[in-house]
C-alpha cells in the first residue's frame, strides 16, 4: 500500500514539477527542446534514484552533525558520474545541456527527497520513491519540452524563457483542473457511502 502511495505521489498527487514546484531552474531552462528535456530528465532520474538508494543505505551511519555534508557529498559524486557518463556516451547532448548537467547537484528535489524520506526509510522504499519522484519530474520535463518545441513552430515566444513560465503555468493549471475534478468525484463516492451508514444507524435508533 505504501509503495502504491509513493508512486501516486511522485507521478500525480505530489508531482515534483507541478505541485512541489521543485527543480524549477533546470525545468524551465532546458525544456526548450524535447531532446534536451529527455536527456536532462534521464540524468536527473539517474542521480535521484541512486542518491535515494545510497542515502538509505548509510542512514544509520550518519548522525545529525554530519548528515547534510555527507548527503551533499553523495549527490555531488553521483552528479559528477552522470556528467562523465553523458560526456562519454552522448557528447553532443553533453554540449547542448552545458552547465545544467553539473547543476543537477543543486536541484532541491534530490536533497529534498534524501532529507524528507530516504534518511528514515529502508532501501526498497527509498529506491522506489526515487524512481517515482524522478519519473514524475522526467514526465513534466518531457511534456514541457514537447509542448514548447511543438508550439515554437508557430509561436517563437514558446522557445524563449518567458514561454517556459507560461507553458509550465498552463501545465500546472491543467493538473489543478483534473485534480479538482478527481477530488469532487472522490467526495461524491464518500458521501454516497456515508448516506448508507446514516440510514443504518437510523434503523438501530
Amino acid at each position: 500500500m505504501k509503495i502504491v502511495t509513493l508512486w501516486l505521489d511522485g507521478i500525480w498527487d505530489r508531482n515534483p514539477g507541478l505541485i512541489q514546484l521543485l527543480g524549477l531552474c533546470p525545468l524551465l531552462a532546458v525544456s526548450n527542446t524535447l531532446e534536451n528535456a529527455f536527456g536532462l530528465g534521464l540524468a536527473t532520474l539517474f542521480v535521484l534514484v541512486l542518491s535515494n538508494a545510497s542515502v538509505s543505505l548509510i542512514r544509520n551511519l550518519v548522525d545529525d552533525a554530519i548528515r547534510l555534508p555527507v548527503f551533499v557529498l553523495v549527490i555531488a559524486a553521483l552528479t559528477t558520474c552522470a556528467e562523465l557518463l553523458v560526456q562519454a556516451f552522448d557528447y553532443p547532448l553533453y554540449q547542448s545541456l552545458g552547465i545544467f548537467l553539473p547543476l543537477i547537484v543543486t536541484n532541491c528535489l534530490i536533497l529534498g527527497r534524501a532529507e524528507a524520506l530516504a534518511r528514515r526509510e529502508p532501501f526498497v522504499v527509498s529506491t522506489m520513491d526515487g524512481l517515482a519522484q524522478g519519473l514524475g519530474f522526467f514526465l513534466v520535463l518531457v511534456s514541457l519540452g514537447a509542448l514548447r518545441e511543438w508550439a515554437s513552430e508557430t509561436l517563437i515566444l514558446a522557445a524563449l524563457p518567458p514561454g517556459a513560465f507560461i507553458a509550465l503555468g498552463l501545465l500546472v493549471a491543467l493538473h489543478q483542473v483534473i485534480q479538482s475534478k478527481l477530488k469532487h468525484l472522490r467526495t461524491q463516492i464518500i458521501a454516497n457511502t456515508k448516506d448508507r451508514r446514516v440510514r443504518t444507524t437510523g434503523d438501530i435508533s
Binding site: 551511519l61 550518519v62 555534508p69 555527507v70 557529498l73 555531488a76
Partner: peptide, 13 residues
C-alpha cells in the same frame, strides 16, 4: 566518519 565518506565518494568518482 565524514572524512571516510569523502574518501569513498572520491574513490567512486
Amino acid at each position: 566518519r565524514l572524512a571516510a565518506f569523502g574518501l569513498i565518494t572520491s574513490l567512486f568518482v
